[in-house]
């Protein structure tokens, strides 16, 4: 799938996971992510992927349950009590707060696994390519750093071996100086060679992408989005903060596009938009639009769940089930491809 489709999919899955807090929906999302991640890991011949992620998920659930259970004493079903005189944790340990902790752990774990999956799905090249043209010098720095990285690692290994042969025990921090200094010197020598080669090939001057007007536009956009967030927190009418969000986002996009057009970028090995990618993008677009519509008419709360004040079973809706199937889309696409 095209990298942009993966990013759209990431946005959709993340938004749904953070909105619902219904454990059943989150479990469905998790199941899909484990299936997808496992498949991608197998394709890349990686060591077992499911087990470390499962271990992380369980640790997060355990930690979150403990923290929430010990500190939060909200809820009607008291399991046992800790003396009130104990600072911070004194009070009833309630079933509801423990369940809330489990849900928190599930959400954090799902987000972690979601990003682990996206790290598997996208190659370094694809991620670098996603950097906007307005940040062209930065993209060049990242590309060079990634290119140099393996040779620097190799050189570090060679210097370390040479030092060990000479009897350096490599136990104290001071023992690392004979590795760090030659590594730094030889790498910077290479940087000079690279700079000279770049200059000789006419790459001396970068396009000046920074302009005060663009900088002010970006600052203004950030302030708009920030103000929208504050207004939303204080429950101002949605018209105010949604307008600020839209204005801010549009200003960032327009500024970056305008500045990016000035960058001289060579395009090669461009990613193609296959029919499957276009179909997936359209499907995720409909998903996000549907979600935004529900948010606008105030129906998103029906997807949510809170165990407080007394624990009850979470409601299950067809709409929620459909939304929670989003991680399955890449599996179907990969299967089709």
């Amino acid at each position: 799938m095209n990298a942009i489709v993966w990013i759209l999919w990431l946005t959709a899955t993340m938004t749904f996971t953070l909105t619902t807090r219904n454990p059943l929906y989150i479990m469905i999302v998790l199941g899909g992510l484990f299936g997808l991640g496992n498949r991608l890991a197998k394709e890349r011949n990686m060591t077992p992927w499911v087990l470390p992620n499962l271990r992380f998920l369980l640790t997060m659930i355990l930690l979150s349950t403990l923290i929430n259970g010990l500190f939060s004493h909200v809820g009607n079903t008291a399991l046992f009590s800790i003396p009130q005189s104990w600072p911070l944790i004194g009070g009833d340990i309630t079933l509801e707060s423990l369940i809330y902790g489990v849900i928190n752990g599930l959400v954090i774990g799902t987000l972690y696994i979601l990003f682990n999956t996206i790290n598997l799905a996208l190659s370094t090249k694809q991620i670098t390519r996603l950097i906007p043209h307005a940040f062209h010098p930065i993209a060049v720095v990242i590309t060079i750093a990634l290119t140099f990285f393996p040779s620097i690692q190799q050189r570090a290994r060679e210097i370390k071996e040479a030092q060990m042969i000479r009897g350096n025990p490599m136990k104290k921090i001071s023992d690392w100086i004979p590795i760090m200094i030659p590594l730094l010197v030889s790498s910077l020598e290479n940087a000079i060679l690279l700079a000279e080669s770049m200059t000789a090939r006419g790459f001396h001057k970068q396009t000046e992408l920074q302009s005060p007007r663009a900088l002010v536009s970006l600052i203004l956009a950030a302030f708009m989005i920030f103000s929208g967030w504050i207004l939303q927190m204080y429950r101002f009418p949605s018209l105010f903060f949604i307008s600020l969000y839209i204005l801010g986002t549009s200003l960032v996009t327009i500024t970056l596009l305008t500045i990016g057009k000035q960058a001289n970028v060579t395009r090669y090995h461009q990613e193609t938009w296959t029919k499957t990618s276009m179909f997936s993008a359209a499907l995720i677009g409909i998903y996000i639009a549907g979600f935004a519509f529900l948010a606008l008419i105030g129906r998103l709360s029906t997807l949510g769940f809170s165990p407080y004040p007394r624990l009850h079973l979470p409601a299950i809706q067809t709409l929620g089930l459909i939304f929670s199937l989003i991680p399955l889309l890449p599996i179907l696409v990969l299967h089709h491809d």
């Binding site: 010098p137 620097i152 730094l184 790498s187 940087a191």
Partner: peptide, 16 residues
């Protein structure tokens, strides 16, 4: 980062 020297320098230091 408007010239090749700074780009190369920063890239190598970042890689290290």
């Amino acid at each position: 980062l408007l010239d090749s020297k700074m780009i190369a320098f920063l890239a190598v230091l970042t890689a290290i």
